[in-house]
Amino acid sequence: MTGTIAELKVDLEDFALEHTLTTVTDLSCEVERLVASDPETLMPFLWVEAPPSALDELEDVFATDETTDQVECITELYGERLYRMHWIRRIELLVQILVEEEGTILSASGSADGWHLRLLFPTRDALSRTDDYCRSHDLKYEILSIYNIDEGRKGRFGLTDAQQDTIVAAFEQGYYEIPREIDSEELATEFDISHQALSERLRRGHKALVKNTVMIGPRASDDDRDEQPPTSRQ
């Protein structure tokens, strides 16, 4: 039994917060945590970011969004706000993933362009059943990538095994310290690769970490990851 990770782009019309994301200018949001309290309600903790003038109208827009209820601002930090709320409509896809297939939402971010989800399914069959469910319920989405965890540790943060081993070694041996405790040539020797190959491996690894931990929104496919061609559910 092998876990499967899938990255999807879901149309706004088939997901929560369509009204909010299309009404508030330059709004983006990222799920910090998502709790499935029952089959009819999900409770996300949601970071939102927008220009100050747009944030001023945000709570009024939440109040007119039919997919949300019980919206509460938990904290505000440097132009971002953390909200706790209930999603009460257009949650069929998430309920299917979390409740029916016992999947996990690794990340979820939304903007006016749509929602981007990174999902962990316990088996490939669970993903297949979710695809069948979307077909039968006319839920529109695009598959950006699918890969198995046993292809390597790249299931975490999009890193290959070699990238993770190199970054960990660099950290443990002081490559990132000022001044450096080991230089790139010494580190390259440990991995029996050239200085140029080491620099490229670190660059790709850092890019993957930024994409999968910092950035909100769509992510380009990694050079180091074998992916299936994108397909669409229209």
Rank of each mutant, 00 (worst) to 15 (best):
A169N: 06
S194M: 11
R90H: 13
G3Q: 07
Q196S: 15
S28C: 11
A188V: 08
S136L: 11
E151T: 15
V99S: 10
L119S: 01
T231Q: 10
Y141N: 01
H137P: 03
E142A: 04
E7S: 12
R204K: 13
D223T: 09
S199D: 10
S221R: 08
D26K: 08
L21C: 06
L21I: 00
F121N: 02
K154N: 13
I146R: 05
I105Y: 04
L82N: 04
D132G: 09
R33M: 10
V214G: 09
T166E: 02
D132N: 12
G217E: 00
P44Y: 05
D125H: 12
E32D: 14
D192I: 04
S28G: 14
S184N: 10
E32G: 04
I88A: 05
V168S: 13
K9A: 13
R233A: 12
A188T: 07
L98N: 06
V48W: 01
Y133H: 10
K140Y: 05
A208L: 01
V210K: 08
R153F: 08
K154V: 03
G103Y: 01
F157E: 04
T23R: 07
E92S: 12
F62P: 00
E72G: 00
C134V: 01
H137K: 12
A36N: 09
G174F: 07
G79K: 06
L55P: 04
T64A: 15
I193G: 07
I146N: 02
R225Y: 03
R81K: 15
L159V: 06
E72W: 06
G205Q: 01
E7M: 07
E102D: 15
Q173A: 10
I193V: 15
I91M: 01
T23E: 10
S232E: 12
V48C: 08
D138F: 09
M1F: 11
T67Q: 07
I91P: 03
G155D: 13
S128Q: 14
E40W: 06
R90L: 09
V48N: 00
L82D: 08
D132F: 01
T160P: 03
D69I: 01
I167K: 06
K140V: 00
F62G: 06
R225M: 08
F121Q: 04
Y133L: 05
S109G: 13
E100H: 10
R124C: 03
